[in-house]
Computed example of a mutant assay.
Amino acid sequence: MKTVYARVVAAALISSVATGALATEWNASTWGKRRAFTENLEKLAELVAEKTNGEFTINISYGGLSKNTENLDGISIGAFEIAQFCAGYHADKNRAITVLELPFLGVETLEQEVAVSNAVYSHPAVAEEMAQWNAKMLMTSPMPQYNLVGTGDARSSLDSFDGMRVRATGGLGEAFAAVGAVPTSVTSSEAYQAMESGVVDTVAFAPHAHLSFGTINEADWWTANLNPGTVNCPVVVNIDAYESLTDAEREALDSSVPEAIEFYVANYGELLQRWDSVLAEKEVEKVMISEDELARFAEVAGPIHTQWIEENSARGLPAQELFDLVGATLEAAKSGN
């Protein structure tokens, strides 16, 4: 009986291979919990499964496969097929896309953030750098401008930022340092504990993250219009896994990206509309920074752009070209072209 059973199983496997019926199952690594930031991944998985009648599925893991700071490393060794990460977690591994994390670039909407991210992701220098990690850019996870939540007395001027301990990564951290703050790059998952324990006075996040990671629950105030910049968090695929897909599977994946981003942006827009009611419910003071102080902040942070260009040009990146690409793309997006 065992011999007969083995033959039946083997015959079924051979038949499945012959007819191309073996399903493709991918794993995607992200962190935290399902939230606005991960809806692009969730929608992508849903669409891919629909378009392939369940023959190509993506299982999303919230921290079970890797630490958020090690997702790019996991992609490089093929530990999973898709991963989400943020450039500021390891700028030395993805220098080209850190141009998108420079402060005061002038991005005003999620749609503009998508436009500039797509332009930079399509640049050959980015593809070359990602290929070193066996990674291919798939899509962005666009986030609005970051703002601060803080404890104690509200900070509404640059002078009040002096000595402020702030959770901020990448270019945002550099911008706050330029006005005398003390940035720390603890991960998003560690931000609440850092704030609760007094390791930091303030945390810079997009609204969804203040909700998801609980920092809003510790907050006494929120800067409604500081808008110094944001972080850039792409979704990448393992190149070997991508190339091993059938033409139909690859088409299902690629064609689902614009739909996933559209869904993400619409969903995030609903969250932003509810944000004021969240602040009121939690009795968090809304702080408005004066236009003069905002202009001073942008002026003080301005040299960070020049420094980024000089440092990364010295490392062999077309830094000026990448920076100009962001500006030109943003100008076109704002003019509706």
Rank of each mutant, 00 (worst) to 15 (best):
F161L: 14
S188W: 11
M143C: 10
V179F: 04
S141F: 00
T151Y: 01
S189G: 14
P142N: 08
A168M: 02
A204G: 14
V186E: 08
G152V: 09
Q145F: 01
T184I: 14
A177V: 05
A194E: 05
S188K: 10
D159M: 03
S141G: 02
L148W: 01
A204K: 04
A175D: 10
G150V: 07
T184P: 01
M139N: 03
A181N: 07
D159P: 02
L158F: 02
E196S: 15
S189F: 11
D159S: 08
M137Q: 12
A135Q: 02
T184R: 10
A206V: 15
A204I: 02
V200M: 06
K136E: 14
S197G: 07
F161Q: 04
P142D: 08
V166L: 01
S189N: 12
P183Q: 03
A181Q: 09
A194G: 15
M195W: 09
A181Y: 00
A178Q: 12
V149W: 04
M139V: 05
M195I: 12
N147A: 08
A177I: 02
S189H: 10
A135M: 05
Q145C: 08
F205Y: 10
A204P: 07
D162M: 04
M164E: 01
V149Y: 02
K136V: 10
R165D: 00
Q193T: 15
L148V: 02
S197Q: 14
V199Q: 11
M137Y: 12
G180K: 11
A168K: 00
T151P: 01
T140D: 07
Q193F: 14
S141Q: 07
K136F: 12
S160D: 13
T151G: 01
S157G: 06
T169Q: 12
T169M: 12
L172A: 09
E174L: 14
D159N: 03
A181D: 04
R155G: 03
E190W: 10
M137E: 09
T151Q: 09
G163Q: 05
V200S: 05
V186C: 13
G171N: 08
D153W: 00
F161I: 01
L158R: 02
F161A: 06
D153P: 06
A194K: 09
A191L: 13
G170A: 15
K136Q: 14
D162Q: 11
V199E: 12
G152K: 06
F176W: 01
A168Y: 01
V200K: 05
S197F: 11
S157Y: 08
A168V: 02
G163S: 08
